[in-house]
């Protein structure tokens, strides 16, 4: 019990506490609440294992660099996703190849879907302009989710 806080001190710290909460914008709170949509997603997580941007950053220190294609690889224990940016679309392939469905999840919680053909290819068009993550599902039980992607 805070017996050592006299009334003025207690009122002062209460004022601080309430102001600290009021200073937080409502969109910030919403962001936090929305994150719960990802609770208990039963997918295998695929980690980013290659990003051409990282390569380019290092290369740029030592030599001039011509524009090249942005390429990313996500890898999980059972599946890789190879992604390449071409114009305004994102082309991808699942390795090993398999047909299925690809979900595009945005941070705002919107989900759109696209087909993955029998050689494992898919395209995301247009590329979302805010961070997104991809979830692949195939009839054989494959369910893989990438980390967040910003193009």
């Amino acid at each position: 019990m805070r017996d050592d806080w006299n009334d003025d001190r207690l009122l002062g710290v209460l004022s601080q506490a309430l102001k600290a909460r009021q200073a937080v914008p409502s969109w910030f709170i919403e962001t936090g609440k929305n994150a719960f949509a990802w609770h208990n997603i039963d997918a295998e997580l695929a980690q980013l294992t290659y990003d051409s941007n990282e390569d380019r950053r290092e290369a740029a220190v030592t030599r001039s660099e011509t524009a090249s294609i942005r390429a990313l690889t996500f890898t999980s224990a059972h599946l890789s996703l190879e992604l390449e940016v071409t114009g305004n679309s994102l082309l991808g392939q699942l390795l090993p190849a398999r047909a299925g469905e690809l979900e595009i999840h945005t941070r705002a919680g919107e989900i759109s879907t696209t087909e993955v053909d029998e050689i494992g290819c898919f395209s995301v068009d247009p590329i979302p302009d805010s961070p997104f993550r991809l979830r692949c599902r195939a009839p054989d039980g494959t369910d893989v989710l990438t980390g967040w992607i910003t193009i």
Binding site: A23, V24, K33
Partner: peptide, 23 residues
Amino acid sequence: RASGGDQDAWYELVDRYAPLVYT
């Protein structure tokens, strides 16, 4: 409760600690 799927508990956690993250 939140790890058991209780959304209200999650909302309360966010409300409680958002000022810390924001600051």
